[in-house]
């Protein structure tokens, strides 16, 4: 295409290196550095299976964080995810114990999660209440419902679920993953496609970039805002299903504080908490970094598990500061 530029000259974007990828690249570099450092320091660390194990142990977190990414990209926040995960394990375990077959159980759990999310989204949009408060209410509600169902942990012995828990899918060279990882991978792929290649996905970015502008550009604001909370609800419910595969139990105290892990993963993945900027790949990397921190701390026998929280907090601080600098420079 040859466009003769007339007077005025060619206006170039001042930054040629795609600055939008910088946060994701930083997270990726962090991951690689941690992996390399671990490999140097500990024997038997730098193997593919270590990375796969991180996926296996965090498949549910990954799915939940995908939902959270949608919400945060649209400029919101969802505090209810951990409770919805717990509620989902509880419903699944109870129904399975009552002799329900697994497909309708899973279907029902996913439906309930989606409805919860959609409902919160509707309240947020139509009654203009801050997402923080509405999803806080949702958090209490879901946690309360799971306690109401039962306060004890309910074991799951249903064959399909145990099969999902125990199956190893062998890859090449002794590497293996669990079916949950496969499901999480599918979720990530679908979500990435939706965010990048569909109008809904682009509208999420637009709404996060500025609700008023999105509205004036004629984008369906209500539908988009409600949809992201619905998606987050669905992902939390699916995360709950994966967690019941992993734990083989339903328990009201499952996934306490998981909303924080999910938010941390999204932020460390380079997504701006103010919305409108970030990538799903970043969230995947964020979950990997969180998981790898745990792995490193478990390899480092003398370090106690609570260092995980401290390191996550520090990382959060560094990344938020980085974001702040980037947005300040842009202005």
């Amino acid at each position: 295409m040859s466009v003769e530029s007339t007077a005025g000259g060619r206006l170039k974007a001042p930054v040629r290196i795609p600055q939008k990828f910088v946060p994701v690249l930083v997270t990726a570099a962090l991951f690689v550095a941690m992996f390399a450092a671990g490999g140097v320091r500990y024997e038997g660390f730098a193997t593919g299976q270590i990375v796969l194990n991180v996926f296996i142990d965090n498949a549910f977190l990954l799915v939940v964080a995908v939902g959270m990414t949608f919400v945060i990209l649209a400029g919101g926040i969802d505090l209810s995810v951990g409770s919805v995960v717990a509620l989902s394990t509880m419903i699944a375990a109870t129904l399975l114990k009552d002799g329900w077959p697994s497909p309708p159980v899973i279907g029902l759990v996913l439906l309930i999660g989606t409805l919860l999310g959609t409902g919160m989204g509707a309240i947020i949009h139509y009654f203009e209440i801050q997402p923080f408060i509405v999803t806080l209410g949702g958090m209490f509600l879901a946690r309360g419902l799971s306690y109401t169902i039962g306060t004890e942990s309910i074991p799951i012995e249903q064959p399909t679920f145990t099969a999902f828990a125990q199956t190893r899918i062998d890859l090449f060279a002794d590497l293996w993953i669990s079916p949950s990882v496969l499901i999480a991978a599918v979720v990530v792929a679908v979500a990435a496609y939706v965010l990048h290649y569909t109008r809904l996905g682009r509208n999420v970015y637009a709404v996060g970039g500025g609700e008023q502008s999105a509205l004036l550009m004629g984008l369906p604001l209500a539908r988009t805002k409600i949809a992201v909370y619905g998606i987050s609800g669905f992902c939390s419910a699916l995360g709950g299903v994966l967690m019941s595969f992993y734990m083989l139990s339903g328990y009201g105290m499952h996934a306490v504080g998981m909303e924080l892990d999910a938010i941390a993963a999204v932020v460390i993945g380079g997504t701006l908490l103010t919305g409108g900027s970030g990538y799903l790949l970043g969230t995947v990397l964020g979950v990997l970094v969180l998981g790898l921190i745990q792995t490193v701390i478990s390899f480092e026998g003398t370090l106690s598990p609570w260092w995980t929280r401290i390191v996550i907090g520090l990382l959060l601080f560094v990344f938020i500061l980085l974001q702040r600098l980037i947005t300040a420079r842009r202005r």
Partner: peptide
């Protein structure tokens, strides 16, 4: 009234 976080092309065509 556009979305500064989106690309120029998207701002023209979004929706």
């Amino acid at each position: 009234n556009l979305c500064a976080n989106l690309s120029v092309a998207e701002n023209i065509f979004i929706g």
